[in-house]
């Protein structure tokens, strides 16, 4: 198990390196000259050249990439062109809101979606099944910003139950923190939830047709425990895969959600950086999100083993 974990962690290094190269090339090829942007509209050619010199933009591609990678390995993602603060620091400052949003979204989505999928499968073809799957399709097809505005209109503006926007750090108290995250999490998680509910239903239906379910029934086991103990554990591997892959949706959605709800997280940082062409920051956040994604999928890989003993490590 330990060796497997180490091997998997080592295996993520080339992945991360490829991601880094990809991001670097992407921004290298992106139109527009960052030096011009930074120097301002009425800067002279000499001033622009000076900025270029300062940022090392006149160096050959490989040298620039090597410099950047070397910095990366030291945890140095460069310095923001605008605020002049280290990118690492900018990201760390905004880590809590983003992680909070992600965590509550993951928890809310998964705890809602799995029972939904299980019940839909258990009652396949009934009106309950159709209602659940209908909701899932809805969650799937309505864009994040639309869900966001609809939910805050109902729960914040009309009912006045929850705050319209903003973020409270955990240090302000659990409830204050959570209150601000409920609507954003549901809005952000709706697509994710729909995805998990669907895969849960599909894989449960497949599992429920297996012979060992009949064996469990022949023992006298109850329907509920057959569903949640015998069947769900067998469906877990497919569900986990989608949970891991679906995190990509959450990352994309977080950028929008944080903007809509004024949550001062990394998503907002990304939007601001893109608007300002703050290249070091863009590179930093994209790399950071890729890292989170790879890490979550690593965790998923390790979790497979918990559910399916046949998966050899």
């Amino acid at each position: 198990m330990l060796i497997f974990t180490l091997r998997r962690i080592l295996a993520t290094i080339p992945v991360m390196l490829a991601v880094a190269l990809f991001i670097f090339v992407l921004l290298y090829l992106a139109p527009g000259d960052p030096a011009e942007m930074i120097a301002g509209d009425n800067a002279s050619a000499a001033e622009i050249e000076q900025v270029r010199e300062l940022l090392g933009l006149n160096q050959p591609f490989l040298v620039r990439f090597a410099d950047w990678t070397a910095g990366l390995l030291r945890g140095d993602l460069g310095v923001s062109v605008f605020s002049r603060k280290p990118v690492t620091e900018l990201i760390l400052q905004r880590l809590e809101p983003t992680f909070s949003l992600m965590a509550t979204t993951l928890i809310i989505s998964i705890t809602a979606a799995i029972p939904m999928g299980v019940i839909a499968a258990a009652r396949a073809g009934s009106w309950i099944d159709r209602a659940i799957m209908g909701t899932a399709v809805l969650g799937f097809s309505v864009p994040v910003f639309a869900t966001s505005y609809a939910l805050s209109w109902i729960f914040s503006i009309q009912l006045n139950w929850l705050p319209v926007q903003g973020y409270q750090p955990l240090s302000e108290g659990l409830w204050a923190w959570f209150r601000h995250l409920i609507i954003p999490s549901i809005a952000l998680g709706s697509v994710y939830m729909a995805l998990i509910a669907r895969i849960t239903r599909t894989s449960m239906l497949e599992v429920l047709n297996q012979d060992y379910i009949r064996t469990a029934m022949a023992k006298g086991q109850s329907r509920t425990r057959i569903l949640f103990e015998h069947a769900l554990k067998n469906a877990a591997v497919s569900i986990l895969t989608v949970i891991g892959l679906g995190v990509a949706l959450l990352i994309g959605g977080a950028v929008v959600t944080e903007s809509v709800f004024s949550i001062p997280g990394i998503g907002r940082l990304t939007v601001d950086a893109i608007l300002q062409r703050d290249y070091p920051v863009i590179q930093g956040v994209v790399l950071f999100f890729s890292f989170v994604y790879v890490l979550i999928n690593l965790a998923v890989d390790l979790a497979y083993r918990l559910f399916d003993p046949r998966i050899r490590l």
Binding site: Q210, D211, Y212, R214, T215, A216, M217, A218, K219, G220, Q221, S222, H230, K233, N234, F307, D308, P309, R310
Partner: peptide, 23 residues
């Protein structure tokens, strides 16, 4: 359910698939 597995039990044709693989 009180009868199944208790008063009347059953075994099946396919032993390879009749047991839960993750238990």
């Amino acid at each position: 359910r009180r009868i199944r597995g208790n008063e009347i039990s059953m075994i099946f044709q396919e032993p390879m698939t009749a047991l839960n693989p993750v238990m």
